[in-house]
Design a protein around this nucleic acid. Structure first.
Lengths: 198, 198
DNA sequence: CGGCGAACTGACGGGTCAGTCAGTAAGGTG
DNA sequence: CACCTTACTGACTGACCCGTCAGTTCGCCG
């Protein structure tokens, strides 16, 4: 009983409309606290219609989360197609990752990891996207090494280390507005980047 | 209407018993999926009794989470009181942090960060404990610098970077058993540690 | 025009679960 | 012993919310 019919544009449009609504609501209330009634109300439609397009709530939320993640990834990939020195590109990628630049997106990710502990489909999404994410960073580093700008021993390792560092810092900053603020985050990352590429 | 009376040992004992039961259940089912009925059933008591000791479910879960976190922190602090070279102590601390050594504990933390996004009390716990946690690492590094074993420019910065790196890696490993496995995690961390202290 | 099916509504069933409450058992105190 | 307080039970309630379904609207095609 597959609901997604690629061929019917009107249906697909509605599907996406519901997905984006779900993303907005999830961002506001959190994944766990998102009811299908909330999504429906946000669009001014009935809950029945939501279930007409998505069999279960879990399916809806998983699809919405993936939708949001893929949009972000596409934006990142677009960003690194610009011309520039490896250094400039690296800065662009790193900046895009930063907590401050996309607070609500990090909130979603943090919740996404937690949900992934119990949900098969969330786990897949989170895994694929995290890896694609790191790959962009790794490619940037590899390019810089090829051009002689960077001197990573192992660009892939460096990419994972930097990505995980930023993830950890994002948690510190987003989940609890603790000791680590935006300025400090930037300094810590900048130092780590320097250490990795030189 | 404060329920916790420090003076009555029998009551305090029951409180702790419920807290630990809640921890066990949370570890098994996840924080969000933990019902007060599950905790009661685990102990073979009534739900009424749980509410006799804790006004609300949120209060119970927050207290249980804090209880677990504080126990872990105490264990870590005990661990670093052993004698040894700064190098050995650092290894002990780092090892204790590792995902593989405490999988279920990391699962709880990941969920804890997500809950902290919405819950005042979880946020406090997570913030205090994360900081205490990094402080132990920072102290270890500082001692090593003082004795001339390590050469961190700024031990506090190094501690935050290492802690956040490990956090990020733990997510990669725990939330999705992705590309990053235990061996790779250890290598990535070991390299980062080396870079920080030399 | 007539009829068919896709998109959509809104009320409802059914299950879950936090928190309440009247009542019980047990232990201590005067 | 009579009384009171504390720890505890378990049935119950009221709210919430997912998913269903009978029925409605509307656009399209023959």
């Amino acid at each position: 009983m597959e609901k997604s019919k690629e061929h019917k544009p009107a249906v697909e449009k509605r599907r996406i409309q519901i997905l984006e609504a779900a993303c907005t609501v999830m961002g506001k209330q959190g994944i766990a606290a998102t009811r299908v009634g909330d999504v429906a109300k946000y669009l001014g439609i009935s809950t029945g219609l939501v279930h007409y397009h998505f069999d279960t709530k879990d399916e809806l939320l998983a699809a919405a989360f993936r939708h949001a993640a893929e949009k972000e990834l596409a934006a990142l990939r677009l960003l690194v197609t610009t011309d520039g020195t490896p250094r400039e590109l690296l800065n662009i990628v790193i900046n895009n990752f930063f907590p401050a630049s996309s607070f609500s997106s990090w909130r979603l990710w943090i919740e996404g990891w937690a949900v992934a502990l119990r949900s098969e489909s969330f786990q897949r999404t989170v895994m694929e996207l995290d890896e694609a994410w790191v790959e962009v960073l790794a490619d940037t580093l590899t390019d810089g090494v090829a051009s002689g700008d960077f001197a990573c021993v192992n660009p892939r390792d460096s990419a994972w280390r930097l990505a995980c560092l930023i993830e950890g810092l994002a948690i510190q900053q987003v989940a609890h507005g603790g000791v680590i603020n935006d300025v400090e985050t930037r300094r810590l990352v900048a130092d780590a980047v320097e250490a990795e590429i030189s």
